[in-house]
């Protein structure tokens, strides 16, 4: 199904834009070869209908992803049982790690490769349904001063990450992913942007790992700083909502200070989340424009439309329907859960298609950019919130 769907176009430049399921093999052959490029016998492909060919790999995606979910739940249960404060490492990272281990040790069996390649389809389905969790109406609940702080944080985070990424000569799409991840909502934004700008699996894995690792550290550091500065619940909650990138960690870091701080952290964080559509849309247009420029095409509007990731429109429509109150609370929960299951398959696929030697080739520079960038953003947002609190106290 995926192969059939991906062959639609007549422009010669399509190879640069085609889904990675059809890209030329990269990296180590045993991990990057497509199902038809390995030279080995492909028993399932002969005569089997396309939907049968994707079944084994889809089962592998589900198994690896579910193992990640069990790992997250088991660690949480162990921490609760032993009254330990363990960092909440989400299934996302576990699924990627387990997938990495499989693909870079025993390798993905040839019979599973077509199914594993469907991860991009699940990614896009998950993103469209993710729209149900991002209400545009949340923006108005926060108040003018806080909204200005959110807008400034978006601009500062994008500028800082872009400047640092360029200074350290990171690949442009990795810079985009780190900028989006640090400015909006960590993993969800990176997921959305990965599809929209067609970033490599390695770049997405690196950006997600950096954001999640720093999110875990923030749980321990932020409350200490908040108490040291004698911040009010509202100011601290706003700061956490602005500076911590992943929603789960922002909620926890806020609640560790106080209940009120937790509520403000969630509100500020949801406001940042609500901007995901606009920022990803902007980056998608930027990269579509860059492709049009590189290809030297005449009708840019038609080219932009052709290259524009249409599923982003689906995301915006679902978000608008949710904002309009079309869904009940139960329906929102159901659709959000469908989205999570789709991402579970997606991240298993990201891990199964990520080449460790390719990650190692990028070295420590992306991690340095991530750490330095996040620290700079945390300091700037802290100064911003303290200044706003003083001005309006």
């Amino acid at each position: 199904m995926v192969t059939q769907m991906s062959t639609v176009t007549t422009l010669p430049v399509v190879d640069a834009r085609r889904p990675s399921t059809l890209r030329e093999p990269q990296g180590r052959p045993e991990h990057r070869r497509g199902a038809t490029g390995s030279g080995r016998p492909q028993p399932v492909e002969r005569g089997a209908p396309p939907w049968v060919q994707i079944v084994p790999g889809t089962i592998l995606l589900a198994a690896v992803g579910f193992a990640g979910k069990i790992a997250e739940q088991s660690i949480g249960a162990y921490g609760r049982a032993h009254q330990l404060t363990l960092p909440n490492i989400e299934y996302v990272l576990w699924a990627i790690v387990f997938g990495l281990i499989v693909s870079n040790t025993v390798g993905v069996p040839a019979v599973c490769r077509k199914g594993v390649d469907t991860y991009e389809f699940w990614l896009k389905v998950g993103i469209v349904l993710l729209g149900v969790r991002f209400l545009l109406g949340d923006v108005v609940k926060l108040g003018t001063v806080s909204l200005v702080c959110v807008a400034l944080e978006l601009a500062v985070a994008i500028l800082v990450m872009t400047a640092l990424g360029r200074a350290f000569r990171l690949p442009p799409k990795l810079i985009s992913l780190l900028s989006i991840g640090s400015s909006i909502c960590g993993v969800s934004a990176i997921i959305a942007a990965k599809g929209a700008i067609e970033a490599d699996d390695e770049d997405a894995s690196y950006a997600i790992a950096a954001i999640l690792a720093l999110g875990a550290v923030s749980l321990f550091v932020f409350p200490v700083i908040g108490h040291a500065f004698g911040m009010s619940d509202q100011a601290y909650g706003l700061w956490v909502g602005l500076a911590v990138d992943n929603t789960a960690e922002a909620t926890a870091a806020g609640a560790l200070f106080s209940d009120t701080a937790g509520r403000f952290a969630v509100l500020a964080k949801t406001t940042r989340n609500a901007t995901i559509g606009f920022v990803v849309l902007g980056y998608a247009l930027h990269w579509a424009r860059a492709r049009a420029r590189d290809a030297g095409v005449g009708n840019k509007a038609a080219f932009l439309w052709e290259k524009f990731p249409k599923f982003v429109l689906g995301f915006v429509i679902v978000s608008a329907l949710a904002t309009a109150g079309l869904f009940t609370r139960g329906e929102v929960a159901d659709l959000a859960n469908v989205s999570r299951w789709a991402f579970l398959l997606t991240f298993a696929g990201v891990g199964l298609r990520t080449n460790v030697s390719e990650l190692a080739r990028q070295g420590w520079r992306p991690l340095i950019v991530g750490v330095v960038g996040e620290c700079v953003i945390a300091v700037i947002t802290l100064v911003m919130v303290l200044a706003a609190a003083r001005a309006f106290s």
Partner: peptide
């Protein structure tokens, strides 16, 4: 006319919305 992967994803997500909204599918666990 063949649909691109993007549109297939939108169609699949739309189907999920219809199934949940109509009540055919509900209480999806996580």
């Amino acid at each position: 006319m063949r649909l691109s992967l993007d549109w297939w994803a939108v169609v699949a997500a739309g189907l999920a919305v219809v199934l949940v909204k109509s009540g055919i599918v509900s209480r999806i666990p996580w």
